[in-house]
């Protein structure tokens, strides 16, 4: 008999709609939907999708406990034996949702996995709690992702313990497993060191984590004299998007003067962001970049000054290396201009 699997997908892959449906509450449908049909094929009759949970991405990230509960309830209801989520590619919120689904199922003792692009923010957050396989950055990679996920899922279902991340191809989970080697640690360390000295390739047995952390700056001492700047990844740009900042995978950022504007209005500003429903930001861009309120506070003397220029890009599948470079550039420019503190807003 085929193993029963629950599949978690978002509103887009569930065929319900795009960003305008991202607040959609979760629903459970019997059988396979969307990419689930490809999974059924790849699972070759050994396992099949018993039910599909479809949930809006915004709803999921805003109601994590509720969605996690629904996942474990659905597993129980269908007496499912495994869960698969996604693949999420480079969709950030979907990656968060898939990570939540796979890690909740794993915590409940169920074989589970998801897959996403290596820069998806869901990876950092959930890799310790779930098996996550790599995918390309967009859905054109569905054809490779599904068979790889199906094969890994069948392996988990057969009760085989997966080998290490390097061999099996999933993202490292930061879990250490005892292994026997013929040589003691001291010998292995010296061998590694000699290879390193000779400039040869060597493989560490324990990679040091790389934390992207900075020492917090002390608090601002005299806010009433301080110049505060605004920076956003929410894509607020002058109407017409003069720098052509892309709706996703942005390749640049813009610097925009707000002079003595008291308020961002829909006739002068808009969002260029393609990763969320633009309706509300286009109606009132202050909902993403709070110029109106900071102007009031400037007038009241609460802050010294709102800096005359804001910086903006679109944080939607944007390459981390680019984002880091732009952040350093923007920071240096603002510091040069005597800006003392920055408020970053993100959608």
């Amino acid at each position: 008999m085929a193993y029963k699997v629950i599949h978690y997908i978002n509103q887009f892959f569930g065929g319900i709609g795009g960003e305008e449906m991202a607040d959609r509450r979760p629903e459970v449908r019997g059988g396979a939907v969307g990419p689930g049909l490809a999974f059924n094929k790849a699972l070759g009759g050994q396992a099949e999708i018993a039910a599909t949970i479809i949930c809006g991405d915004n709803y999921c990230v805003g109601h994590q406990e509720e969605v996690a509960r629904l996942i474990t309830d659905t597993v129980a209801q269908y007496q499912a034996e495994a869960l698969v989520a996604g693949p999420a590619f480079n969709a950030g919120r979907y990656g968060m949702a898939c990570g939540l689904a796979a890690s909740s199922a794993e915590a409940a003792g169920l074989p589970s996995l998801t897959a996403m692009y290596r820069e998806n923010p869901g990876l950092e957050v959930y890799k310790a709690g779930a098996y996550i396989l790599p995918t390309t950055d967009n859905a054109r990679g569905m054809g490779q992702a599904v068979p790889a996920m199906a094969a890994f899922l069948l392996k988990l279902l057969s009760g085989q313990k997966p080998g290490d991340a390097g061999t099996e191809g999933y993202f490292e989970r930061g879990v250490r497993v005892n292994t026997f080697y013929p040589e003691v640690g001291a010998e292995r360390a010296v061998t590694m060191l000699l290879k390193k000295i000779k400039g040869q390739d060597f493989k560490t047995e324990y990679r040091m984590p790389v934390f992207d952390r900075v020492t917090p700056r002390p608090g601002v001492r005299n806010l009433a004299q301080a110049t505060i700047a605004l920076v956003t990844s929410g894509g607020i740009v002058p109407k017409g998007n003069p720098d052509h900042i892309a709706a996703s995978s942005a390749r640049n950022y813009g610097a925009y003067e707000i002079g003595d504007l008291m308020d961002l209005t829909s006739d002068q500003f808009q969002t260029a962001h393609g990763g969320y429903d633009q309706t509300y930001a286009n109606q009132d861009p202050d909902r993403v970049l709070p110029v109106d309120v900071l102007r009031q506070m400037e007038k009241e003397g609460k802050i010294g000054r709102l800096y005359h220029t804001y910086y903006s890009t679109v944080g939607n599948g944007t390459a981390v290396a680019n984002a880091r470079k732009w952040g350093e550039e923007i920071g240096a420019r603002l510091k040069n201009e005597g800006v003392e503190a920055v408020i970053l807003t993100s959608t």
Binding site: E19, N58, V61, V125, R213, A281, D286, S346
Partner: peptide
Amino acid sequence: SIVPISQSVGANRIIPTVAIPHPLG
């Protein structure tokens, strides 16, 4: 609006906001 992402990218002072399409409204 998604605090775990702000944490994973290393932000030191984090203010949770209203919702993804309208964080400040």
